[in-house]
Amino acid sequence: MSELKSGSNLEKVLNAGHFAFTGECGPPKGANVAYLKEKFEYLKGNVDAVNVTDNQTAVVRMSSVAGSALMIGEGLEPNFQMVCRDRNRLAMMSDILGAYALGIRNMLCLSGDHQTFGNHPEAKNVHDIDSMQLISMVKKMRDEGKFLNDQDIDVPPKMFIGAACNPFADPYEYRVYRLANKIEAGVDFIQTQCIFNMDKFRDFMKKAVDMGLHEKCYILAGVTPMKNAGMANFMSKFVPGMDIPDSLIKRLKGVDKKDQAEEGIRFALEQIEEFKEMEGVAGVHLMAIEWEHMVPEIAQRANVLPRPVV
């Protein structure tokens, strides 16, 4: 057991060698705190930390800092997401300090979906720094206690630093090197894009393990249960960087429409079982998109409960 960098629950769980289980929660399109608290209830006790998305798919929502802070108030641990699309380095550093002051201890560094996908496609985007540079910036703030300009930070933010990895985007051969770069930049844990193509992911993990990357950061495999064949079809066609094999779509179509959700969950559970045994995988990140109420059942059936207390 190494020295803790942030002392977050997620870090402690991973550091103790437990198989981590994280969830996700999108803040509301408004200031509806009651809605958020209802979602929290489904996640509480069932996951180690919860990603709070930052204007995901470039649609305006309650800020991820505020969502994360509300989450802490309800006794859950947030994984605060930050994208490079909406803030320059000043706003980023300032929000990181603010997040830490509010008790946030995990953060996920992302490029962010392009604003043309969202509900304000006329917006100017920022991209002052990219996700790789954001990782190194958070690390510098934490480990050196310095801003980008090398001036000292009065009480540095001790964040457990996460990033995303999409093994299914192109060019595939480069993806493992990009992961290595993120580790060099200072990432502590990785959450992958939703995995559906297991063959490709097995191959990717083998490459990562061969390079020893799993020993330098914790890799959490992304799982999204399909609600029905239509969702699989839609994601396959319209969500960039998604790799959904025809066999999965066929499998979902192969059962009665009313049973497709159960079939989707079964596939997710099979995936989780395999990830528990897969070399280099340190946990699962469950993205039950607008399906938070299913998290307790999925966690139960995946045999990941109770969550370890460390």
Binding site: D170, R178, A185, G241
Partner: peptide, 21 residues
């Protein structure tokens, strides 16, 4: 690059085409 990334392709790169267009 639609996001002016300096450290490699984002997760939206597919078959040599940008996610934006």
């Amino acid at each position: 690059c639609a996001k002016s990334l300096m450290n490699g392709p984002c997760g939206g790169s597919s078959k040599g085409i940008c996610e934006v267009n």
